[in-house]
Design a protein around this nucleic acid. Structure first.
Length: 609
DNA sequence: AATCAAGCGT
């Protein structure tokens, strides 16, 4: 509305005869205005100068209008900025670039690209600033086709060696999950700054290629001219977290303390997330409590971390605490909260939260939230309710379908509900999602109820369709060596006999304590935890081998973590607790304490990096 | 006058 007034005023001014306009003094009010616009500290000031510019008839001046446009952007008034742009008689490349950057910064990247496309029509030549912004727009949209087109234009304009543009391209390819293209651009850069390196490290970290992220980080450290900063460490920690590499994560923590003048919230969030994913929830908590005013993101990370460790009550307390402090939960926070309820069997709390999220917090539940609730009902054995809910959710995205029906299928198998397992499995197969896993789980459900004919039938069907289960693997990180295990023959496993002995003993004790693996959720490590093919069942699951090896190492006084499929296996955590009970000592805690290098912020950790 | 990197879910 405000901007609309300006528009009509501007038209009115244009009708005034030149003589009636205020004369320009040779003291140049122009420069005066520009300086004021640059140093302005609040929106009111921008509006007042806007009015005075109108009076002086200075809005036709592209240079001044560009300053005004950017002043509006400084206070996030993207609409006002756009209206200023629309009134510039001859917008130049800076006008275009500034408004494009404004759109990108306000979740309107598509409009930035539209504006970019308008430039040739207005016969404005884009420059390096414009291209960097255009690439950034594609990056935000993860629109790799547009990104490739812009990349091609960059080459045509002879800007293929520009540092800023190429760094943006690395980021764009990374965000579009085209990691190899990101690396190609990175390798071809004539020179690189810390942003180029951080972008490439983060491209690896975000695309499940943590090993390469850490490798590249090591390479970066060899160059003494470039210092890693907060961005770099956040990505490195993210890589450690996704790999479950506690030792590297610890060392990064040490490096953060030693090498960064101060830690910001993003690094702290990455750090607490890393500790949670590597199994040290107490460390997560310590990092979290060191933050004075954590925002929604560290709160969410902590809630999710606690949930994964089976600390459902703690998750809910954290949620209470954050809302009490007036921090608004977002969609991800609720995924964490529902996840917590699901994994701690707090079904009714979970349903309450689902219902309150829209009403009280104005967060609309989507497929991911409903999937959590389906999972929660399924784990609790309330399969009919789970099925009813799942049938009523509208899911289009293949990945969402896989999560929803995959969750129901798994619960149906656990509870021996053949009817629902078949229904859920067929949904997956129809949607061409997780087809192999669906066949295997359906077949396992037939096995649970003793219907061997159908087990065999499904196996034949799989063979006919040429479906083969990829071998899963698990690994253990001991000191800084990673031991990888595949399902199969025990004789291939290092210290196989010892491993076998420990596992047998453990399984016996667990059965004595009533862990049959039929209750869902916890205690599943030892019975059918992985949906592996029947052949693998004859041998051993990779997780059991990894766990057994870890236990043997632990018995020899070695500190270990057990990992599964890139993430910490929450069931292993439960298993550790049981093992501690069985051996009558708190092995886990004692061993974790040996890692305690950080006291009072000082550090005695070896220089890993 | 305008351009590049980071953290929370499955």
């Amino acid at each position: 509305m405000l901007a609309g007034q300006h528009k009509s005023l501007a038209l009115g001014l244009a009708l005034l005869p030149l003589s009636q306009r205020l004369p320009q003094t040779h003291l140049s009010p122009k420069n005066d205005f520009v300086q004021k616009l640059q140093n302005i500290e609040n929106l009111g000031g921008v509006i007042s100068i806007h009015g005075r510019l109108l009076k002086h008839g200075l809005l036709g001046d592209t240079f001044i209008s560009n300053h005004l446009l950017n002043a509006y952007l400084k206070f996030h008034r993207i609409e006002n900025a756009r209206l200023v742009f629309d009134e510039i008689p001859q917008p130049n490349v800076v006008s275009f670039t500034s408004l494009m950057a404004g759109f990108v910064g306000h979740q309107r990247a598509r409009e930035a690209l539209v504006l970019f496309g308008r430039m040739p029509v207005d016969e404005i030549m884009p420059n390096e600033f414009t291209f960097a912004t255009a690439v950034n727009a594609c990056s935000v949209l993860a629109h790799v086709e547009a990104g490739r087109q812009v990349h091609a234009l960059v080459q045509t304009f002879g800007l293929g060696r520009n540092l800023v543009i190429t760094s943006s391209l690395v980021d764009m390819y990374g965000k579009s999950n085209e990691t190899n293209d990101a690396r190609r651009v990175f390798d071809e850069m004539p020179d690189r700054n810390i942003i180029s390196w951080s972008s490439m490290i983060s491209a690896y970290a975000q695309n499940a290629r943590g090993h390469e992220a850490l490798e590249l980080f090591c390479e970066l450290l060899k160059d003494n001219r470039l210092l890693p900063n907060q961005f770099t460490y956040a990505s490195v920690l993210n890589a450690c977290a996704s790999l479950g590499r506690l030792v590297a994560g610890k060392a990064s923590h040490a490096a953060v303390i030693r090498r960064l003048p101060q830690m910001n919230e993003v690094v702290a969030s990455a750090l607490l997330d890393m500790y949670a994913k590597c199994g040290l929830i107490n460390y997560s908590c310590t990092v979290f409590r060191q933050m004075e005013t954590p925002s929604v993101i560290p709160y969410t990370a902590m809630i999710v971390g606690a949930a994964k460790h089976g600390l459902g009550r703690f998750s809910l307390e954290l949620f209470e605490e954050m809302t009490r402090r007036g921090i608004r939960p977002n969609d991800v926070t609720f995924i964490g909260v529902l996840h917590a309820c699901s994994h701690s069997g707090l079904v009714d709390f979970g349903i309450d939260h689902l219902n309150s999220m829209r009403e009280r917090y104005n967060v609309v539940p989507d497929a991911r939230h409903y999937t959590c609730v389906v999972d929660m009902l399924g784990r609790a054995g309330r399969l009919d309710e789970a099925y009813r809910l799942a049938s009523n959710i509208l899911v289009e995205n293949g990945n969402d379908i896989a999560l929803l029906w995959g969750s129901l299928l798994s619960a149906s198998r656990t509870h021996g509900r053949l009817d629902l397992a078949v229904e859920a499995g067929n949904r997956l197969i129809e949607a061409n999602q997780q087809v192999t896993a669906a066949y295997v789980t359906m077949s396992n459900t037939y096995a649970v109820v003793g219907n061997w004919e159908n087990v065999h039938g499904l196996r034949t069907e799989m063979k006919k369709r040429g479906l083969q289960k990829e071998p899963g693997c698990s690994w253990v990180e001991i000191r800084s060596t990673t031991y990888v295990f595949y399902a199969g023959d025990i004789s291939l496993c290092p210290r196989g006999a010892e491993v076998m002995h420990v596992l047998k003993e453990l399984e016996l004790r667990m059965r004595e304590r009533g862990y049959t693996g039929r209750k869902g959720g916890t205690g599943m490590v030892f019975v059918d935890v992985e949906e592996e093919a029947k052949e693998a069942i004859l041998g051993l699951h990779s997780e059991r081998l990894a766990l057994g090896f870890a236990l043997v190492s632990m018995a020899n006084g070695v500190t270990i973590r057990v990992m599964k499929n890139l993430r910490m296996c929450e069931d292993c955590h439960v298993a550790f607790k049981l093992i501690s009970d069985i051996v009558g000592r708190d092995l886990v805690v004692r061993d974790l304490n040996r890692f305690h290098h950080f006291r009072d912020g000082s550090c005695s950790c070896v220089d890993y990096w």
